[in-house]
Design a protein around this nucleic acid. Sequence first.
DNA 1: AAAATTGTTGCCAGC
DNA 2: CAACAATTTT
Length: 789
Amino acid sequence: MTTTIDFLSHLNPNQRRAVEHFCGPLLVVAGAGSGKTRALTYRIANLIVEHKVNPENILAVTFTNKAAREMKERIQKLFAEQMALSEFGERYDLLPEYDQVRLRSKVYKHIIKDLWCGTFHSLLSRILRFDIDKYQDEKGRTWQRNFSIFDESDAQSLVKEIVTKQLNLSDKKFNPRSVRYSISNAKNQGLSPKEYEKEEPNYKGRVIAEVYNCYQDKLAENNALDFDDLILVPVRLFQQNEQVLGYWHHKFRHILVDEYQDTNRTQYQLISLLTTFGEQKSQWNWENRSVFVVGDADQSIYSFRMADFTILLDFQQDFGDGLADEDTRSMVKLEENYRSCENILEAANHLIENNTQRIDKILKATRGEGEEIFYFQADDEVAEADFAIDKIRSLEKENPDLNWGNFSILYRTNAQSRPFEDILVRNGIPYTVVGGLKFYDRKEIKDVLGYLRAIANPADTVSLLRVINTPRRGIGKATIENLTNAAQELGTTMWEILSDETSVNTLAGRSAKSVNNFVRMISRFQQEVENLPASEILQNILDESGYVQDLHNQGNDEAEDRIRNVQELYNAVRQYEEEAEQDASLQGFLASTALSSDLDNLKEGQTAVSLMTLHSSKGLEFPIVFLVGLEQGLFPNYRSMNDPAALEEERRLCYVGITRAQERLFLSHARERRLYGTREPAVRSQFLDELPRELLATQYSRKIAYKKGDARSAPVGSNNTNNTNNTNNGKPTPNINWQVGDRVMHKSFGAGEITHIFGGGSKVSVAIKFPGLGQKIIDPRVAKLKKIE
DNA sequence: AAAATTGTTGCCAGC
DNA sequence: CAACAATTTT
């Protein structure tokens, strides 16, 4: 691998700057479709080839498992191509299949295998498999390395149990869902129960803090973590144990983070600790060390899980030189869009300009104008689906280049998929729905995984209780209650009680025999874990537990379906074992199931129409996109309509949707929609009115006739702060040296305080915190600001 | 202890 | 209109 990779030649100057970056911090502001994945993969390759960085010193954080997998594949291919030239003097794709495979596996073995590339959750669960036994929380709770990962429904049932059984509170006043949400938010902000109570000292806050505390007890009792813990625990561990932090800080010399605008405070802390070893800025040493983040504040759509895009905006202050755009060496902007046709981009740019909380960035088209955007108003949701599928059929028929996989239907909520599915089925068009009911959320899958979890982690009482009487073994409520109480009294895990036959005989009465049989079976499996691969354990469970037999006896179609799904799970284990050479353990597999998302199964080159939410579509692209259900209350969602910041997030979501389209974009809505079973009238979304009309065509006219002269200005009623002339009475703010902490007066938002300054010189923007309105980013040249003393 | 029936609540997004 | 929970029946 001595020759230089020539890939640098097909990059634009800014991409090239990003890819060639070696040490120190760099923020890559990457607009939609600007080739950021390419920048990330090429940079990793460049680090290894050009700067001789050892792959095991690289940590790359992606937003989904799918993105991680694709990134690894692309790097693998880059190296294989490189080696083809240096070893065979031949182009990779001209080599015989046999040599290609050989090259790829060689690259895998020497490079890809050692790369740490994955989501925050999967990477950190891997770190915790090494080090969680060195962690102790503020109450002295500890965990072992074979911990379980509880999913959202596990977490919610724990909360429910605590609220109703332990604290005897009404689950109406403290509904488990929202309490769980509060706890999750607390964790994502790094708050312990005590700290949360300090923040929310009212009655409700005190109760939630108490639930949170008990919830942590339960997690620890089960030797389990929830999703949020996978991030929070490593942060706390790093803060309390310098040796552990030192190890990982030393190992991960080059850190890359994709979709940085969607990181939350805890994730930021983690990156910060790993990069800086928790030291003061003056102590930092960037020799052979870098932190490289990629993101786009306009695509920040996960604030509901505490993502905070000001983290991205602060990057240069936190890690970099903090200099203005023109002078900075710690930021690169990618504004050239290689994905969408000009009409689509123009619509997207126009829409997002209605947001005040943003940094100016315009996507520049590199492709042709393309076809007009099509807008359709349907009578109801069924007619809307009819329209979309009609279009899909005719387009597919007319264009031999298109296949079903080139189409996607994007909506705001999962519930909207139904009518589209119905009509796709009726037309015999293959499709896949991403999200909704996940494979691993199915009852039969959770049951079987329950066995595996109980075997991998005997302390996992939740899983144990799930399977102890599944299938029916005559172990009933009374027996389980006795056992639970006993475990409680003795302060041990239920498994310890169960392991002792005499105890079981006294406690379980009539059911003792079945309980003991069950326990013996699980013990046997636990011993097998040492010597057998997970797939064989699973096979034994299916044979010996009677689970499949029980399904078989039911004899209906639904049961047959379930058996097939269980079989599918077996295939998944086998596949996992083949792919994951380094961690082919049962625990590794269980972690992968807990952290998998539906998206991960969406394969490239699949020839089926994709249906998914706008959130899921982030990072994807399709030649033809249908953005449906553009109605007030649905999109933007009614819960966002009275909150300016939330509304802006909805608009960003719409921006994400539009920028998924490469060639053609269809926008639609219904005039009437079924909701909760009743028909409700629907009004077209305000986002439609924020698009330039002359870009839209309808079923009646080639292009919508637009009103008088003022073609490209925003429609009446929007607050377009970039339109200097009609929002500000002509006078922009004179060039003042703004400073953080300045109190200012804004014409429509009132008094506020400057919290950040972005850029410098003549093109600054400032972030201002307005009481009650939250933080906004404003360009003082455009919006009139007055300094108040 | 399990099945059948009636009642209730919820649709925002997801690792 | 669903899924899900609580309640009653067998």
